[in-house]
């Protein structure tokens, strides 16, 4: 595991260091790319808890990503227009304060995922993949057809939201916010996976019958893991919307769910920093291949195929060892 620790350190150091160099060199777009990597990585870290540690292949995490985005969009659009969010039973104003938005995003994603997970976890295998997809499609069509918040057009927020004491419009400061949240989440995840709950979750994935025999309800373990996973992805969604100053139903599309899965697998399923490495590779591929050819998606497809067929365990798996991460 030593090589993985080394690789993890290098990944985090690079993700923190490159934007600082870019800032000094006057290349703000590199910082924007790094911010995108940090945010997509965060979303992947969330998905990885369900998918990697819990073995719950969710094809619908875009729903939580999008709900986080809409939490930001709705609150900030009300703050922008000076209209209250609700007038009954008490008047609730909109807000452009990031911590409040984050909390709302986490809670909203958590609530939605509680409902979805409670129903979906009755199924297994392919059925689970498909029912999560169905719920995400419902959310997607709801967002498209609901006229109050822009429908298909989405919501534009003209100025990035505030964080006390920082100028979030400055790319490097906003990156710092996202990077800090990523590190905090990673620390939390490492605590969780090492805890009794984390061990039970691993055991539930590998041998649910044995865990049940211990007198533990695997349903509850899975439910908790799924909701926690959705909350992290929801937080990432709020940040992603703030990065783009824009949210639209496309954040909830099934392609987005696919991209999140791609990010997790590219990096290495079940590895702590796998999603971050995966997000880095994905963003770089997208940016580099696009410059080579109009038909860059062919090459992206070929790279993905190659990773699945020949580089099992993703980038981190290749770098660190040949141990299969899915145990």
């Amino acid at each position: 595991m030593n090589r993985e620790t080394l690789a993890n350190t290098v990944i985090l150091a690079a993700l923190a260091g490159i934007p600082v160099l870019a800032h000094l060199g006057g290349e703000p777009f590199v910082i924007t790319l790094a911010t995108r990597i940090a945010i997509l990585g965060l979303a992947g870290v969330g998905l990885n808890l369900a998918l990697g540690h819990g073995g719950l292949v969710s094809f619908g995490h875009a729903a939580f990503f999008g709900v986080g985005g809409y939490a930001m969009g709705v609150l900030a659009s009300h703050a922008q227009a000076w209209t209250p969010l609700a007038t009954w039973p008490v008047e609730i104003p909109g807000t452009n304060l990031m911590p409040v938005i984050w909390l709302t995003a986490i809670l909203a994603a958590g609530l939605l995922s509680l409902v979805i997970a409670a129903l979906s976890l009755r199924t297994r295998g392919v059925y689970f993949i498909m029912i999560t997809l169905a719920f995400a499609q419902m959310a997607y069509y709801f967002a498209i057809s609901w006229p109050a918040y822009g429908g298909e057009d989405g919501l534009s927020i003209y100025v990035r939201n505030r964080f006390p004491g920082l100028n979030t419009l400055d790319p490097i400061q906003f990156f710092a916010v996202c990077f800090t949240l990523l590190c905090l989440t990673l620390a939390l995840m490492s605590r969780i996976t090492g805890s009794r709950f984390g061990l039970l979750l691993q055991a539930t994935r590998q041998n649910p019958a044995r865990v049940e025999a211990l007198g533990v309800q695997t349903y509850r373990i899975r439910l908790f893991a799924f909701v926690l996973s959705a909350m992290v992805t929801g937080l990432a969604g709020a940040l992603y919307a703030d990065l783009n100053r824009f949210v639209s139903p496309s954040m909830m599309s099934w392609q987005m769910s696919g991209e999140l899965i791609v990010i997790v697998i590219l990096g290495g399923v079940g590895r702590a920093l796998g999603p971050v490495a995966g997000a880095g590779l994905y963003v770089l591929l997208e940016n580099q291949l696009g410059g080579i050819s109009d038909h860059w998606q062919i090459f992206l497809g070929a790279v993905l195929l190659w990773v699945v067929l020949f580089a099992r365990g993703g980038v981190l798996g290749m770098l660190c060892d040949r141990r299969s991460a899915d145990g």
């Binding site: 703000p28 777009f29 924007t32 995108r36 496309s250 109009d294």
Partner: peptide, 21 residues
Amino acid sequence: IEDDQQKPDIAVQLADKMIQS
């Protein structure tokens, strides 16, 4: 010239790139 793939978030990122870089 850049391709937005008809995705709003990609378009925003391209605009950032063109303005910043």
